[in-house]
């Protein structure tokens, strides 16, 4: 197997507050191979976005990376000096944010913002950078890019602005793109276009993608593998087909059951009772056990570690061989 672009091992992110230390991410490990799209799903507050911010080094105080390793092409980046990490951001890891309406600085033309980003990372003259910016705008599907490059963000529609944001994220040919809910703020009609665009551009360049979303439909269409997060941990990670069609972890089962389907008829969608625990009150053992219908004694005391099951990993005692008889 080729070396992964991104390799995260036992990552822990904590927020130090007056009421104590909140564990936003508690021991997350995953890899992303070159050109691969990893979908990260989960409810709000599960730690999806914080994982993305940690990878690109944008966790802000009072948050901090409390443990673990993040490696980009084998090189550790979680402990880089601020200036060295700045050079990684934008150049080797690009990021796409949720809301294109607020991601662009309203006082500069899209061209100025593109040229600024390009020239920060690549040794190009102003003229070369501008030509590159026009090419990028054309690539992300902006009509008449040589004219539109001098437009201000408010002269673009939401979908067009998100295309500009994508062009900005890809402007220095990064090895990894983190897309944090890239379609959530968009009109349903343009969501599919934007997702297709991200997937196509990254496939052409061989760029790996970490796609954070709570939209299972987007994941099913786009991702190669998917990681399901709950309460700051990955409960199940594996090929998207396996996880979506045959989820193993009870939480993943509930999550996939909540997707409406045209093929199977159901009067009611599956509902997971209760809600995710607050970070200040994560239950001991498996964080999901109070809501889990298949929980047993061990779940309340013993925290499940990820177990290998075929091509995936599941953090659930049901799949521990020693308890196989209870599971069956």
């Amino acid at each position: 197997m080729t070396e992964p672009v991104l390799s995260v091992r036992d990552l822990k992110v904590q927020f130090v507050t007056r009421r104590g230390v909140l564990k936003a991410i508690d021991g997350v490990s995953f890899d992303i191979a070159p050109g691969e799209v990893l979908g990260v799903v989960g409810e709000s507050g599960a730690g999806k976005s914080v994982t993305g911010s940690a990878v690109i080094g944008l966790i802000e105080p009072p948050g901090r990376i409390a443990g673990g390793e993040i490696r980009l092409k084998g090189e550790r980046i979680d402990n880089l000096a601020p200036e060295a990490m700045r050079r990684v951001r934008g150049k080797r890891i690009g990021m796409i944010f949720q809301d294109p309406l607020t991601s662009l600085n309203p006082l500069y033309t899209v061209g100025e913002q593109l040229v600024e980003t390009i020239r920060t990372h690549l040794p190009l003259s102003a003229g070369q950078a501008r030509r590159r910016a026009i090419d990028l705008l054309a690539e992300v599907g902006i009509p008449a890019p040589d004219r539109r490059i001098d437009g201000y963000p408010h002269e673009f529609s939401g979908g067009m602005r998100q295309r500009v944001v994508i062009a900005l994220a890809l402007s220095a040919e990064p090895e990894l793109v983190i897309a944090d809910e890239p379609t959530t703020a968009l009109d349903v009609s343009v969501q599919a276009q934007i997702i297709t665009l991200i997937k196509r551009l990254c496939a052409e360049r061989g760029t790996a993608v970490m796609l954070v979303t709570h939209d299972m439909g987007v994941i099913a269409e786009t991702a190669d593998r998917v990681a399901v997060m709950y309460s700051g941990r990955i409960v199940e990670i594996g090929p998207v087909r396996d996880v979506v069609k045959h989820p193993l972890h009870p939480y993943a089962v509930g999550l996939m059951g909540a997707i409406p389907s045209l093929e199977t008829h159901a009067d009611r969608l599956v509902q997971i009772r209760g809600s995710m625990p607050r970070l200040s009150a994560i239950p001991p053992g498996c964080a999901f056990h109070p809501r889990c219908e298949r929980a047993f004694a061990r779940c309340a005391v013993d925290r499940p570690e990820p177990l290998d099951r075929d091509r995936r990993k599941v953090a659930c005692h049901l799949y521990d061989e020693a308890h196989a008889e209870i599971a069956s």
Partner: peptide, 26 residues
């Protein structure tokens, strides 16, 4: 605190460019 400053950081712009070019002008 705005998103475009966060995005400017994510694009790897220098601290100087962010603070004076993007933040101060706004």
């Amino acid at each position: 605190r705005t998103d475009y400053i966060k995005f400017a950081r994510a694009r790897g712009l220098t601290r100087r460019a962010i603070n004076f070019g993007h933040a101060l002008k706004n």
